[in-house]
Design a protein around this nucleic acid. Structure first.
Length: 658
DNA sequence: AGCACGCCGACT
DNA sequence: GTCGGCGTGCTC
């Protein structure tokens, strides 16, 4: 009896109505290579249109009653879409009312013929070197057992830096914890995926891994790699040997058959949320994958996101803290500025200035600022509302007094800007001139000290243990050998003033990540911020703060206490989807106009309703895409942006405006 | 998205 | 009588 003749194929098309499997017959000449996971080319609709796709399964009878087309070509015999990745992609897409192919595109890099040939030629007998099973140091002994049993953990990271053996430099202790957990997984013969927000984090994890594992056990897989490098790394992940796979947000989709651990660092970092449809946060993908593959899951951070706090409260994650408990030394600030004329100019409170001054005798001092350069916030010159980017709603700033205003989130230049509130075209700087400290001001307050500036443009990863004033924007802080002798968090007030549902969480995260770079016992000083937020930092009780933050969100029915779906598109499509969703049984916020014949409505519902809601909205998306297309473009006139229906789950940003 | 199929106005 | 308009529907 001949084997299966029918291939069920996922077609690579952006159309939501094609997000299902199509049956094709497999011609004899392709039989030997036809396997689930291989990339194929298939005809779609008679007129010779050819699409890429993936064989998902081979069966011997078709679901489809019509005549089947034949698979045209198998692009590579390698099954690049691993079964566990396909299952995950389908699950993730369903939860987000999106297309599986959009996830598959994140998961499977494009073929590089030369790389593939070289890979197939190298018959690597991947004998597993025996590695010692390390312990995750600094935590209760029970953690090892929890992870080995596929447990799910919200891990409070150790707020210190650690020196790696063999002159390999200093990393955040969290990176060593990750490497230890990964190496323990390898010792058990399983693979680990370590997912970090940015490349600086990735470098730390890789350095820590190098101290525990031979290089052939570690694979780096991220978007910054060249295509050949990425494909080479990807092919290695398809093998059976246990590996530690390190990368940024998309690495949660890396193939790994025998997965023992997924560890995610700093889930509150916005780099974890995927900007491409269906906009799935790597934390959510990791949660689904943990469920599907039964591996251990670690979500670690210095501070705690409200999302993780919610998962702890519902019992999905178990909170684990360092043992013994480590509490950084936070020094309360007296509000008054002064103590030194130059410190006064830089608006550094006297106590903070004195602490920093003394610490500079011992080594480097970190000064965290919102922005080291000239960066007034801009407002509309007419109505006074915050000037926002027309593309992404980010606040606009100026790099220098004469430069063109640009978005501080996406970087787009604000040419031809108009205020979205009053149509005004002029800008006004908010706050008195010099509301922001410049690096020069700060340097002058500490005369004779070496100044190092680290920000988005001037990236500095490490500084040595010699005295230096390290002025860094939040998130760009270098790691100091031995830790900073003092940490000054200067622009807290300005950071807190940012309007966002997540301000408190974000600020606590920015500050905590900087404080965790201090030497043991070295003072950290938060300037100009008081209240619950400051005391959460001082007491280093992040879970308690996240719990109260989450309680507030519950009261207000804001995410992540509830789920939300943002619907944008043509008025009719949106209102139809709102009706289908079961409104008014669900909360409906909106619609509000957000462009020419485009509206936005937010649906708000409980987690229990999520699956049903995603399915309903997905069918509305398909309906909007298929039925009643927009009327033919009148000749000569520019077609406005396509007013189809878009759905995005759990986006908190629209809550800024209300 | 593309492309085919299908039911109403002016043409040899 | 039919050539072709683009509204509607499907893609194995």
């Amino acid at each position: 009896m001949a084997p299966a003749l029918i291939a069920r194929v996922l077609v690579d098309s952006p159309l939501p109505q094609l997000d299902r499997l199509f049956d094709y017959s497999v011609p004899d000449r392709l039989r030997s290579d036809a396997r689930p996971g291989v990339r194929v080319r298939v005809p779609l609709r008679s007129a010779g249109r050819i699409s890429d796709g993936f064989i998902i399964e081979l069966v011997d009878s078709a679901d489809f009653s019509g005549a089947l087309s034949e698979i045209e070509e198998i692009l590579s015999p390698i099954p690049v879409l691993a079964p566990e990745v396909w299952t995950l992609a389908r699950r993730v897409a369903d939860r987000a009312a999106g297309s599986a192919i959009d996830i598959v595109r994140l998961a499977v890099p494009h073929r590089q013929v030369r790389v593939e040939k070289a890979f197939l030629a190298s018959v690597s007998s991947d004998a597993i070197p025996v590695v010692a099973r390390p312990v995750v140091t600094g935590y209760p002994e029970s953690l090892a057992g929890t992870l080995a049993a596929g447990g799910r953990v919200a891990l409070d990271s150790i707020p210190l830096v650690t020196e790696l053996p063999g002159d390999a430099g200093w990393v955040g202790s969290w990176a060593l914890s990750f490497a230890q957990a990964a190496a323990a997984t390898i010792a058990d013969g399983k693979s680990a995926i370590l997912c970090v927000p940015d490349y600086r984090d990735q470098d730390q994890v890789e350095a820590a891994l190098a101290s525990l594992l031979p290089p052939e056990r570690v694979v780096r897989l991220d978007a910054r790699q060249s295509n050949p490098d990425r494909y080479r790394a990807f092919l290695r992940c398809l093998g059976d040997a246990p590996l530690v796979i390190v990368g940024n947000r998309s690495v949660v989709y890396a193939p790994s058959r025998s997965l023992g651990l997924i560890a995610l660092w700093d889930d509150g970092d916005p780099l974890h949320s995927e900007p491409l449809a269906p906009y799935v946060h790597s934390r959510d993908a990791a949660l689904l994958r943990q469920e599907l593959q039964g591996c251990a899951l670690v979500i670690a951070a210095h501070s705690r996101s409200t999302e993780v706090e919610r998962l702890v409260e519902v019992g999905w994650l178990t909170s684990v803290s360092p043992s013994p408990r480590i509490r950084p030394k936070l020094v309360p600030t007296a509000q008054q500025v002064g103590g030194d004329r130059l410190a006064e100019q830089a608006r550094i409170p006297s106590s903070a200035w004195r602490e920093a001054r003394a610490a500079l005798d011992r080594g480097p001092v970190l000064v965290q600022v919102a922005r080291p350069g000239y960066s007034p916030r801009l407002a509309c010159g007419d109505c006074g509302q915050t000037a926002r980017c027309l593309r992404c709603e980010g606040p606009l700033t100026k790099r220098s007094a004469s430069s063109v205003p640009a978005c501080s989130w996406c970087g787009a230049l604000a040419v031809g800007w108009r205020c979205s509130h009053c149509e005004g075209e002029r800008f006004r700087s908010v706050g008195a001139a010099g509301a922001t400290r410049t690096a020069e001001d700060l340097g002058r307050a500490f005369p004779g000290v070496r100044v190092i500036i680290a920000d988005g443009e001037r990236q500095v990863q490490h500084v040595d243990a010699r005295p230096a004033l390290v002025i860094a924007t939040r998130g760009a802080e270098p790691i100091a050998a031995g830790g900073y002798q003092a940490v000054l968090l200067l622009d807290g007030e300005q950071m807190v003033a940012r309007e966002s549902l997540r301000v408190a969480e974000d600020c606590l995260r920015w500050w905590s990540n900087a404080v965790a770079l201090a030497a043991p016992g070295a003072p950290s000083i938060l300037v100009g911020v008081g209240g619950a937020l400051a005391s959460a930092l001082v007491t280093w009780r992040h879970s308690a703060f996240a719990a109260s933050e989450l309680a507030d969100r519950r009261r207000l029915r804001f995410p992540p206490a509830v789920r939300v779906a943002t619907l944008t598109g043509a008025v009719e499509a949106v209102s139809r989807a709102v009706e289908a969703s079961g409104a008014p049984a669900v909360d409906v916020l909106g619609p509000v106009d957000i462009g020419p014949s485009t509206v936005r409505t937010i649906l708000r519902f409980d987690y229990a309703k999520g699956t049903e809601m995603a399915a309903t909205l997905r069918s509305e998306v398909i309906r909007a895409a298929t039925s009643r297309r927009r009327p033919a473009v009148p000749k000569g006139t520019r077609a406005p942006s396509p007013p189809t229906l878009k759905v995005r789950f759990d986006d908190v940003e629209p809550f800024l405006e209300q």
